[in-house]
Design a protein around this nucleic acid. Structure first.
Length: 114
DNA sequence: GCAATGACCTGCT
DNA sequence: CAGCAGGCCATTG
């Protein structure tokens, strides 16, 4: 398949431990280009390795996911993340706007750290 | 084979 | 402080 930035994206996402989540920017940055966050999402959209690439572990900088593009629905994603041990919190008081029902991943506790 | 679009993020004005 | 524009690679039609 691809032998470039895209391949790194899959590799990075695949390395995300359970109970942890990574952001597109983080994956893109680890891939080599922070500005490539766009293609990170596209790469996962293709999802060449379903079951191997936990797209649901990849979330926005705000902690929310892609509404409508989730593997089966934002509600499903929350259940999966919670099932893995990821902590969820209500929308931030000021910063970070909720892109969903009002539940965002606790980036300060569950964001994947290098 | 060509062209256009796409789950975003960052910086500057 | 807020809003706007730009940018990269790959995939799809």
């Amino acid at each position: 398949m691809s032998t470039t930035f895209n391949a790194l994206v899959y590799d990075v996402v695949r390395k995300i431990p359970e109970g942890k989540v990574a952001t597109y920017g983080q994956v893109a940055a680890l891939a080599g280009n922070p500005r490539n966050a766009r293609f990170v999402g596209y790469a996962l959209h293709s999802n060449p390795e379903p079951g191997v690439i936990p797209c649901h572990r990849v979330v926005f900088r705000d902690g929310s996911l892609a509404p409508g593009f989730a593997f089966g629905g934002p509600d499903r994603q929350r259940a999966l993340l919670e099932d893995e041990g990821v902590s969820f919190l209500p929308p931030a008081p000021k910063h970070e706007n909720a892109g969903e029902e009002g539940w965002v991943v606790d980036m300060k506790r569950c964001q994947w750290q290098c």
